[in-house]
């Protein structure tokens, strides 16, 4: 996993609540057995005017010019500003994979769905929760100032505007923060406790042999 320390990037505003993972990456693209290549189909039904199928050349597809990611001013965006309950629905990790593959490194919203939130951390995509008011303020700023950028400092747990005028603090669980800062393979971390797991398992299967 790529570590996340400090990131500065263009912010794109997705002004809808309850964006579900079916919208982030529609089901027909889940047939892939790879982790990569989902970016061109991120928000497929909103981004394009035709019906998306695996294997299409995205450069030949008609784009929906109304959709925010198709506005030239948000090209190259790497921070997605969203509304509450972002990522609800299916557990598909293809959703964070698609966001990352498109170029996003961080998401900011008032709340995220639990499974999606968890999946983001496993892939080096940082989901940041800010208050409804702060998110509102950022939506106004993004829409008012073309090229609006933010800097995210994970170690300091802060988001600030490029002029340094506005800064927002965010919470992140210490364990997750460390994993992300260092790009840890958390399977290796867990396997460092293999003896404890083995002991727990042996006792458990002895006490409840029907679990074997």
């Amino acid at each position: 996993m790529e570590p996340f320390r400090i990131h500065t990037g263009i912010v794109a505003p997705l002004d809808r609540a309850n964006v579900d993972t079916d919208a982030i990456i529609p089901k027909q693209f889940l047939k892939s057995i790879k982790r990569s290549g989902f970016g061109p189909n991120l928000f497929d039904e909103w981004r394009y005017l035709d019906r998306g199928e695996p294997g299409q050349d995205p450069s030949t597809r008609p784009r929906n010019s109304d959709f925010v990611l198709n506005h030239p001013r948000y090209h190259g965006a790497s921070i997605l500003l969203a509304r509450r309950n972002f990522g609800c629905g299916s557990s598909r990790e293809h959703a964070p994979w698609a966001l990352l593959d498109y170029g996003f490194r961080a998401l900011i919203a008032p709340s995220f769905a639990d499974i999606f939130y968890n999946n983001c951390f496993k892939n080096g995509l940082l989901p940041i929760v800010l208050s409804e008011n702060d998110v509102d303020r950022l939506f106004h700023a993004v829409k008012a100032f073309p090229g609006f950028r933010l800097t995210i400092d994970l170690d300091a747990q802060s988001v600030h505007t490029s002029d340094g005028q506005h800064a927002y603090r965010f919470h992140v669980e210490p364990f997750r923060k460390q994993c992300l800062l260092h790009g840890h393979d958390d399977i290796a971390l867990t396997l460092a406790h293999a003896d404890e797991i083995r002991a727990f398992e042996t006792k458990r299967l002895a006490e409840q042999p029907w679990l074997a």
């Binding site: 964070p96 892939n123 958390d186 399977i187």
Partner: peptide, 9 residues
């Protein structure tokens, strides 16, 4: 429910 990274975990 879990994601694919957790399936691997």
């Amino acid at each position: 429910g879990i994601g694919t990274s957790e399936v691997e975990h």
